[in-house]
């Protein structure tokens, strides 16, 4: 490898590559490879584990609303935990505080013009902004229509009714497309329920246990031709299993 380039840690390196778009004063200026494959210790880039702790994006009010919503989208029942206990709100919180919430890497240059649905999302606001505005508009709507209440003060039946009207777009929220907001809530909640637990949702692999997905296992050679037999091993996460980790 050419020595004119300082050897950066993988993370700095990847970040600069991704940011290529926004930074101008980057230390990396292209890399040269010659006579041999590069390899450096500690260069791998595993995902960072989401830790329990304070909300990173939501205010405590927003978080309480979100926990109520995710628990209706995926209700707890005898099939297993609901969205709240599975950590879906935590998942969304951490995602919104990260690159997804900021629309990092997306094309965000103007002009913004309305188009046909086949042309995709065409608004300047990022998911973070859409949640902030959507949750506020929703809270205002509920306060006005339900004599000053908040979403979590409604009965679960009324919460479901409200979510249905969001889903079919039959309520109008201020400055926000109710239907699109609901679609984003649902998509992110289900992603949290089924993504690797390392991201804060799918706690105890609740989503994977529900359907019977073995998770991050990587070798099924002995099982391909065992037709009609249920795969016997429980799921594992990228982090392993909670029962492997010492509780001390």
């Amino acid at each position: 490898m050419d020595s004119k380039v300082p050897l950066l840690s993988r993370r700095t390196f990847l970040t600069s590559a991704a940011i290529l778009v926004t930074t101008t004063a980057s230390v990396v200026h292209g890399r040269t490879f010659h006579q041999g494959m590069p390899w450096a210790p500690g260069a791998a880039d595993p995902p960072a584990q989401v830790r329990p702790g304070p909300w990173a994006f939501f205010t405590s009010d927003e978080a309480a609303t979100m926990e109520a919503i995710v628990d209706r989208l995926i209700p707890p029942d005898d099939g297993g935990p609901g969205g709240k206990d599975a950590g879906c709100a935590v998942f969304i919180d951490r995602q919104l505080a990260g690159p997804y919430g900021r629309s990092d890497g997306l094309y965000t240059l103007p002009p913004f013009m309305p188009g046909s649905s086949t042309q995709g999302y065409q608004n300047p606001d990022s998911p973070g902004g859409r949640y902030r505005a959507g949750l506020k508009a929703l809270a205002d709507h509920i306060r006005q229509s339900q004599s000053g209440k908040t979403l979590r003060e409604l009965s679960t039946v009324d919460q479901d009714k409200l979510l249905s009207t969001l889903e079919d777009g039959s309520i109008k929220l201020k400055d926000i497309d109710a239907k699109a907001f609901f679609a984003m809530l649902l998509q992110d909640t289900q992603q949290g329920f089924f993504a690797d637990p390392i991201y804060g949702g799918n706690r105890d692999m609740a989503g994977w246990k529900l359907v019977g997905f073995p998770g991050a296992r990587y070798d099924y050679r002995d099982w391909v031709e065992r037709h009609n037999e249920r795969y016997p091993l429980p799921p594992v996460s990228i982090m392993g299993r909670t029962d492997w980790v010492s509780k001390g």
Partner: peptide, 26 residues
């Protein structure tokens, strides 16, 4: 470095957030 079997099997990162793909901003 980029997809060892320790964490290559991450649906959110690779299939949903499209970690290895071209970013539209580029």
């Amino acid at each position: 470095t980029n997809f060892p079997p320790a964490y290559a099997q991450d649906e959110l990162r690779y299939a949903v957030r499209l970690d290895l793909f071209l970013r539209p901003a580029q």
